[in-house]
């Protein structure tokens, strides 16, 4: 039983270890390479506004 637990512990340890490394390197890579990912919101400028004629909750 102890051996089985050890195998499970190592298997889960390796899987979690690789997952953690993947998540951390991915996040660091994304953060360090994130340049203008978002599109500009055109409502910020130019005075464009939506005029509501009807707003209802059914």
């Amino acid at each position: 039983m102890d051996q089985l637990f050890l195998i499970i512990a190592i298997a889960y340890g390796v899987i979690m270890g690789i997952g953690t490394a993947l998540a951390i390197t991915g996040i660091i890579l994304k953060k360090s390479n994130k340049h203008g990912d978002s599109k500009g919101d055109l409502f910020d400028f130019n005075g464009t506004q939506v005029h509501y004629i009807r707003r209802e909750q059914l």
Partner: peptide, 13 residues
């Protein structure tokens, strides 16, 4: 990171 975290998780498990 994979080696270090694998060791930590194995010990924890």
């Amino acid at each position: 990171l994979a080696v270090v975290s694998s060791i930590i998780f194995t010990i924890l498990m």
